[in-house]
C-alpha cells in the first residue's frame, strides 16, 4: 500500500523559511544547499508525536497516579526532547526525512519536540509547542518504519548555545559547554519535591565554559528504530515507562533531584537502562522503552 502524503504546493512552502535573523539575503540558486528541495521531486511529510505519562496525555500541572515503583502521584511540569538523523525505512533502504528549517528544526537535521506550552503548571516553558516532525521526502516514498537518534550529535552538542540558532539556543535545554544539551527534559513533582529526568552526555573532559576536545565517555545519544510506521501513525513518548522501577518520591542526598545522567545517582540505576543506555554497573536493556508507535 502506498504511503499517502500530500504533494508540496510551492517552493516557498517547503523550507519553512531561512533561519531567523542571521543569514545574508538568501540566494535561491541550485547550488545553495539551504535552498528548498525541488517541489517536483519531493512531497511533504508530517510525523506527529504524543507525550504521555503512563499512557495519559502530558500536560503541565496534570497529576498522574501510579508513577514509579511506589505508584506515586506525579505532577508533570516539562516534557521536551531532541532528535536528529531522522530517516524512513523503506523496502529500498533508508530515506532521509529532510526537516523543514524553523524555530524547532535545524538545517542539519536536529529537531526539538516540545510538548509544554509555558502555561500554568509549566516551569520555564515556552508558549510555542512542537509535537511533530515536519519535512520532505522523495515523492512516492513508501515507508514501513523510522530511525532517529535521541539527543544532539557531539559536533553540535558543545558549541556556544547562546549564539546558536533556534532551537539550539533554548536556555532551558542547555546545561553547559562541557556537557552540552539536555537531550530529554521530563520534569515532574512527586511527594512535594521535584523529580527531573535530564538525559545528556556525561564524562566530557572540560571545565564549565569550555567545549571538550574529546568525545564524552557517556555520549548518551540513543539510536532508535521504530517498525510499523504508517501514514496515520503517532509516535508516543512516555516518560512513565522509564520510571517504573524507581521510587520518585525520594532523592539521594548530594545527587541531582531525580535522574540527570551523572554517575553515582541511584535514581538513575533503573532509568537509564530503559533508554538502552548503560549506567555504571547497570547494563543497557536491549530495547529503549521511551518511544513507540501507535
Amino acid at each position: 500500500m502506498r504511503s499517502c502524503v500530500a504533494l508540496i504546493l510551492s517552493c516557498a512552502a517547503c523550507g519553512g523559511g531561512d533561519p531567523p535573523a542571521t543569514d545574508a539575503p538568501a540566494s535561491h540558486d541550485a547550488a545553495d544547499p539551504d535552498a528548498a528541495p525541488d517541489a517536483a521531486t519531493t512531497e511533504r511529510l508530517t510525523i506527529p508525536f504524543a507525550a504521555r505519562v503512563n499512557g495519559a496525555p502530558f500536560a503541565c500541572g496534570q497529576t498522574y497516579a501510579g508513577v514509579g515503583s511506589t505508584a506515586a502521584a506525579y505532577t508533570a511540569i516539562d516534557f521536551r526532547f531532541f532528535v536528529h538523523d531522522v530517516t524512513l525505512v523503506t523496502a529500498d533502504g533508508d530515506v532521509p526525512l529532510t526537516l523543514d528549517v524553523d524555530a524547532f528544526q535545524t538545517a542539519d537535521g536536529i529537531a526539538l519536540l516540545d510538548f509544554e506550552n509555558g502555561g500554568t503548571g509549566c516551569q520555564m516553558g515556552t508558549v510555542a509547542t512542537h509535537p511533530a516532525l515536519t519535512g520532505t521526502v522523495p515523492i512516492g516514498t513508501v515507508f514501513t518504519g523510522m530511525r532517529l537518534t535521541i539527543g544532539i550529535p557531539f559536533a553540535k552538542n558543545h558549541l556556544d548555545a547562546t549564539l546558536a540558532l533556534p532551537p539550539l539556543n533554548v536556555p532551558a535545554m542547555f546545561w553547559a559547554w562541557s556537557s552540552g544539551y539536555k537531550f530529554i527534559k521530563a520534569d515532574g513533582v512527586a511527594n512535594g519535591s521535584g523529580f527531573s529526568l535530564h538525559v545528556g552526555s556525561t564524562g566530557c573532559s572540560a571545565t564549565g565554559s569550555m567545549a571538550p576536545a574529546q568525545p564524552c565517555t557517556s555520549p548518551n545519544t540513543i539510536p532508535v528504530t521504530l517498525t510499523g510506521l504508517t501514514p496515520t501513525s503517532t509516535i508516543v513518548a512516555d516518560v512513565g515507562r522509564l520510571l517504573t522501577d524507581v521510587d520518585i518520591t525520594t532523592n539521594t542526598m548530594d545527587t541531582a533531584p531525580g535522574c540527570m545522567s551523572f554517575p553515582g545517582d541511584p535514581e538513575c540505576n533503573t532509568v537509564m537502562p530503559k533508554l538502552a543506555l548503560p549506567y555504571g554497573a547497570f547494563p543497557a536493556e536491549p530495547q529503549q522503552r521511551f518511544l513507540s508507535i501507535e
Partner: peptide, 22 residues
C-alpha cells in the same frame, strides 16, 4: 547553573535570536 547558567549567569534571559524570552 539551572538558575544561574548561561552567558549572563541567569537562566532568565532574552535576546534577539531567541524564539521566545526565557
Amino acid at each position: 547553573h539551572h538558575c544561574h547558567g548561561g552567558f549572563n549567569f541567569s537562566i532568565a534571559v532574552d535576546h534577539a535570536a531567541l524564539s521566545e524570552p526565557n
